[in-house]
Design a protein around this nucleic acid. Structure first.
Lengths: 148, 148
DNA sequence: GATGTAATGTAAGGGCCCTGATATGTCCAG
DNA sequence: CTGGACATATCAGGGCCCTTACATTACATC
């Protein structure tokens, strides 16, 4: 009864968007669980890794690197500072800017996290096989760039 | 100075996991923005679409369908009920269970949302080209299933 | 029928991510 | 030098997602 409306497109479950959500959710959950053993979350690891590549980044720069808003990055950095993994100090030349740097402990923790992340990436690449991971990688970035 | 540690593996940006995050984040942001014009969020649309396929689902069933915890689904359903898009009632046979159903307005809103979601899926499939969307779809689901 | 197990619904608290708004600082054009 | 554009940091509030925890109900097994 009451099937006056269009029959539901049951292809929802077949959409690439759906698979994308599933895959990302699973990877994120796995990484969160693994990183938790060393007291990190996935976004926190992402920030620490970014700081390892280039030190003394401002909150705004960190936000752009991670494709999130400055407010979001603010909360993450505050947490990292509370945990003693990063330290912020006023920019020597620019009054308003706070530069963020890894502490000794942050430097140590991120090394452990690298191993965990590398294992996760291996899992992903094995799952992708027999497809070429580079092909999947490129297709995913095209999706990201295609969204208006 | 202080490059006593291992040089950072700058391949972080080349990982499939990174691309996965970028793509999903971009799609989610796009969908959220589009669905916002009709007063929905992406998870809300997901729930409404699920209810359209099969009515009278319990909160626990909805949660399993969406791969989230019952508590998370609880919050979403409460919001949908507040907005008058679904209605919950005690299960006739099972005292504890609350069954959720679409209201007339919910049924109407989900039809609009379907069009928005279909346009987004088209964007994704066009971005994936020249790769076969089905190949990408299958690879993504393999990733989801591979995470322990 | 009593008891243990499983499933369900909720509450509380934390983290991430967003929009909207505010305050402060730099810098350039006039 | 002054006004305005622009960048930065931060607050407030909302939504989604999690873990931990608890109370209630259904059911099986004894």
């Amino acid at each position: 009864m009451s099937s006056l409306t269009v029959p539901p497109e049951d292809d929802t479950y077949r959409s690439v968007g759906y698979a994308l959500k599933r895959a990302q959710q699973a990877l994120r959950a796995h990484l969160d669980a693994e990183l938790r053993t060393i007291g990190l979350t996935t976004p926190q690891y992402s920030v620490l890794a970014g700081l390892e590549r280039s030190e003394s980044l401002s909150n705004a720069e960190l936000a752009r690197q991670a494709f999130v808003t400055p407010q979001t990055m603010q909360a993450i950095v505050v947490g990292l500072e509370r945990d003693g993994l990063v330290k912020r100090a006023a920019h020597p030349l620019h009054g308003r800017v706070l530069t963020t740097n890894l502490t000794q402990e942050g430097r140590s923790v991120v090394q452990e996290a690298h191993k965990i992340a590398a294992r996760a990436e291996t899992l992903v690449r094995n799952a992708v096989a027999p497809d070429d991971p580079e092909v999947i990688y490129a297709a995913l970035l095209r999706i990201a760039d295609a969204m208006p």
